[in-house]
Design a protein around this nucleic acid. Structure first.
Lengths: 160, 160, 160, 160
DNA sequence: TTTT
DNA sequence: TTTT
């Protein structure tokens, strides 16, 4: 089918440091755990309540893996844009199990750092927006080298 | 925590008719199965490949449940906007299992029909955008009755 | 027509303090100037280039006006979610002019603070997500008082 | 600056056929006029009201220009994802004027057809999602040739 | 397991 | 007019 859209947008904090694994073909995946939470007032008691949601993020985009590895740490606040994917796998007893992740892969993915602690002088990095732009109405142009990076994964032995 | 965003945007087709269940307190949930798919050319063989992803959607927003129930059918194309939520449950053997869904609940959710087959003459329905708007600069105004509907669910016995 | 979506998502910094104006009926509008920018490497010269875009944001949602007024300052980083609106007006010479803004109004708008400087102890505020949520599968519930706020503007003399 | 996001998502119908112009360097721009509308009940009178918003879209992405040219017509329903851009220009009297558009350029843009009339048998086309994906966990893979297309415009004489 |  |  065509005519479909599958998009997830998260802003939240990392629950732990990014975890990077390499494949035999040189590809890499970087996994993040991101927390989002909402607070609200209980309608009856009036007390403040909170609910935290934990998201599993898998980055296959080469450039974004590099950014995550280098700049993100436990506690970092990030914006991620990717797509929902559910994988089927078998547990030890052979039963079907499913894991749903937010996957950053291909050109329609974005990772933006929203704090700047820890990177020395400055901070922030708009990984997903580097390249690809420029003033479309500007004269000679010629600029903007996208290089959005792409997966190229050769291995399916990923024990999530 | 504050400062977080949890948003999912899907455009896809229903794999089956919506399923509505009622709770003892009068609340309802409507479950959808939505397919999104991408196609791409294999870099090596040049052949066209396709990947379909199936999403579980749970609608708690009263008004959107009504729309889904009334207008959506197997094959309907919809836009949904909600948030990611993972529930923990125990299977028969007592093991922890997790299910991730796109939840439409509260005022930050949207459901928009993108085809109009079956509803007689015309069609389409922008469920999530009914109400709440109007020309902010227009004179007397006074209009726009939001009534975004809200859950109010009393029951936790939901066998997904 | 139904079946449409009009959504803008911005993350950027305020170029100046928020400006709030009141209407005769008690309503308020808060205007923000938000900068977003991209950087890229020029494909030919290899040098780093940057492009900044300035966005006009008009907040009519009562609760979000309060948040903006109280917590946002020049330099603040925010996430805003609203809709595109173009207004027609006449300049002094009577010519038609058009201004396009990102309007936050009604329940489908969000404002999230992404830094916490200046608010004393802590910081951050998820204005757009307060209320409306809660564990949909949780037992008695009854909580979550949305109160998304709504415009109610009575005046059209807004000199943008 | 880094750490910013500039994203517009629209679903609406074309008010007229797409207009394509070529630049001297071979680049092209395709302009769309897209209508979105909301309906709501007037809070006082109870009558149904409607507001239509017209959006100017400029597509610079080569592949998406081709899709728009070939498949879109007046009345077509589309999903577009791009970024907000305001251009400054001088009118005949030399006064500064501003035009705001939704620009589809670079890899972070998407165009998806949401109806299929006119293209013979079947339909739909997920322009922005062709390429770039594939099963990241699938074995040999190697597939997915992105080729997101990019502008390369040589001309600044665009009379909007 | 984050953050406020 | 922001931010890096």
């Amino acid at each position: 089918m065509a005519g479909s859209v599958n998009k997830v947008i998260l802003i939240g904090n990392l629950g732990r440091d990014p975890e990077v694994r390499s494949f035999q073909n040189g590809g890499k995946v970087c996994n993040l755990r991101i927390a989002t939470s909402e607070t609200w007032k209980d309608r009856n008691t009036g007390e403040r309540r909170e609910r935290t949601e934990w998201h599993s993020v898998a980055i296959f985009n080469e450039g974004l893996v590099r950014v995550a590895e280098q700049y993100l740490r436990k506690g970092s606040k990030v914006y991620v844009e990717g797509q929902l994917q559910t994988r089927k796998w078998q547990d030890q007893s052979g039963q079907d199990r499913y894991s749903t992740e937010v996957v950053l892969q291909g050109f329609n993915s974005t990772l933006v750092m929203l704090d700047a602690r820890g990177e020395g002088g400055g901070g922030g990095y708009g990984g997903g927006q580097s390249g690809g732009y420029g003033d479309p109405y500007g004269a000679p142009m010629g600029g903007s080298a996208p290089a959005p990076a792409s997966g190229g994964i050769d291995d399916d032995e990923i024990p999530f």
